[in-house]
Design a protein around this nucleic acid. Sequence first.
DNA 1: CACGAATGTAAAGATATCTTTACGTTCGTG
DNA 2: CACGAACGTAAAGATATCTTTACATTCGTG
Lengths: 69, 69
Amino acid sequence: MTVINHIREIRKKKGISQIKMAEDLQVTRQTMNAIENNKYNPSLELALKIITYFDMPIDEIFILEEDAK
Amino acid sequence: MTVINHIREIRKKKGISQIKMAEDLQVTRQTMNAIENNKYNPSLELALKIITYFDMPIDEIFILEEDAK
DNA sequence: CACGAATGTAAAGATATCTTTACGTTCGTG
DNA sequence: CACGAACGTAAAGATATCTTTACATTCGTG
């Protein structure tokens, strides 16, 4: 099981930079960048901040997928 | 900002033991116990498994709260 | 070209999440 | 009482998340 996310698409659609989003969420730009590029998943706390920030249902942003075999 | 959860209440209402829930979710009993007792928050992946397991919306299980001052 | 803005990335270090092993308590029930 | 089932907890170790600092690339635009 792995989690994929659609943060980059949503962020771009809203015309927000990684920098601004990171500042708004009080994390570093590197953290947002790493999450968008699937270096790792956000913590639950950060994930909740992100869905609040985007004001979207969690399943439109984070998706739990079966691992490819 | 901290995350609180209602896992224990929901689990008990459904009549499931920590042991069974841990097995079903493929984590250790200690992990479920620690999360219920707020030793730490689950990872996003485990949180998504939990909402799927309970088949409930995330905001009825995990709540992002302001820190008490 | 020069520049600023946005993004990618890397490495070291701090802290959080999770496992493994182990021991203790409580409670129901034979 | 003896036993099993459920739960609490602790400590050591592995791995994941996040910060700080730093450098590099890409792209638009004066």
